[in-house]
């Protein structure tokens, strides 16, 4: 499956990573190499083989429904990013994390 510049841009958009046209061209050649490596898989007949998501065949453990967490908002918000666009303040206000306006 040959990869195109358009594929790179589409995937980069899905992954929310800005790529310039020159980035995309460089990325294309590298990813094409990696996909070439991956293509080896297609030669294997895997019909009827159960996919393996985990290395051990175990079941999910369940947690008791008991509150164990305390409010650490202030501690956590010390790591808030810098707001940007001219402001050097942390991107928090009134206990909320601040982002550019979300439009629905």
């Amino acid at each position: 499956m040959a990869l195109s510049i358009e594929d790179i841009k589409k995937v980069a958009h899905l992954a929310r990573i800005e790529v310039t046209d020159s980035d995309a061209a460089a990325t294309l050649s590298k990813l094409t190499g990696i996909l070439g490596l991956i293509e080896q898989m297609q030669a294997v007949d895997t019909s009827g083989i159960e996919p393996m998501s985990h290395s051990q065949d175990l079941n999910q453990r369940l947690r008791e429904d008991v509150v164990t967490k305390i409010n650490l908002r202030d501690e956590f918000q010390k790591n808030a990013p810098i707001l940007g666009n001219g402001s050097t303040l942390p991107a928090v206000g009134d206990g909320l994390y601040l982002v550019p306006k979300v439009i629905e």
Binding site: R16, N79, P81, I82, L83, G84, A91, P100, K101
Partner: peptide, 15 residues
Amino acid sequence: DGVRYGHRAAEYTDL
């Protein structure tokens, strides 16, 4: 994603 911690771009136009 630059929302709660980690790197956020210095300049951006929207979300």
